[in-house]
């Protein structure tokens, strides 16, 4: 099997998010960027499927500006076999990303897409579902377990209030949730090796995908600040306060 994993470059999860003064977005200058954590989990799962002998090749795909090359190198340092970089400075929406993945699927003919369930910047949680729809493939989102058995996938998904178990045929699109695995760290020798792994560069134009925005960001605001709370000394005072606020 061939697996394609998607890797997005986002503001590192540990960074403090600051809204720009002109409200056009959030501050990215001088801010540490990393691979989207859910994408790291997706890469790890593809590598584990390879180590178990189910997957032969893991191809990592990133989309975005030149700097995304670093994220692709990270994926290859973890163990992905090669990379594809869809080079563009246009801000991409999930529908664009899904269409670009579909084009890549037409030439790469993968059996499996593993993507992160969402990116921690726009929190959309859409790309995997859209890709599955465009390809007319089965989808399993928010997965916390996957096993290959008799040419089928046995999947556990996280749903509201618990877990759902599914069986799916291949090819399929999966999206990784937090508890699927713990991603490995790239070792120094593997980081060196990654630099020698092949990377294809393509543009949305070459792939024939229109990436004109469908959605316009009007402004980005700070969330409303909460007023300083009231300190109470006793349980009775707390209860009184709750009654005053009308929640008990």
């Amino acid at each position: 099997m061939k697996a394609i994993v998607g890797v997005k470059r986002v503001i590192d999860y540990a960074q403090r998010i600051r809204v720009k003064a002109d409200k056009t977005g959030v501050e990215t200058v001088g801010v540490k960027m990393s691979m989207n954590p859910f994408d790291e989990i997706a890469v790890e799962e593809a590598l584990r499927l390879k180590e178990k002998g189910h997957v032969k090749e893991v191809v990592a795909v990133t989309m975005g500006p030149q700097q995304n090359q670093q994220i692709l190198l990270n994926a290859m340092a973890m163990g992905a076999d090669r990379g594809i970089h869809v080079l563009t400075d246009a801000p991409l929406e999930p529908i664009h990303v899904a269409k670009l993945f579909k084009k890549i699927a037409e030439t790469e003919k993968p059996d499996l897409f593993i993507l992160g369930k969402q990116a921690i910047d726009d929190d959309s949680n859409q790309t995997g579902q859209m890709l599955a729809g465009l390809l007319n493939w089965p989808q399993a989102t928010n997965i916390s377990k996957v096993e290959v058995e008799g040419g089928k996938l046995k999947i556990t998904r996280e749903i509201d209030g618990g877990l759902q178990n599914l069986e799916s045929s291949l090819p399929a699109v999966l999206t990784a949730d937090l508890r699927l695995n713990e991603p490995r760290f790239a070792t120094l020798p593997n980081i060196m090796k990654a630099k020698k792994k092949p990377t294809d560069k393509k543009t949305p134009e070459e792939l024939g995908v229109d990436v004109n925005p469908r959605i316009q960001t009007i402004k980005v605001d700070e969330p409303p600040v909460r007023q300083a709370g009231k300190k109470v000394e006793t349980v009775e005072e707390l209860l009184e306060g709750l009654k005053k606020l009308g929640v008990i």
Partner: peptide, 29 residues
């Protein structure tokens, strides 16, 4: 396109939604 987690409907084409886990609010058209 789809718009996830809408918190406020401003007009028939403009919506407010959280980004960065609610650390910012984006108004999108």
């Amino acid at each position: 396109s789809a718009i996830s987690d809408v918190m406020k409907i401003q007009s028939e084409d403009t919506f407010v939604r959280p980004i960065y886990a609610g650390n910012a609010l984006s108004t999108v058209k």
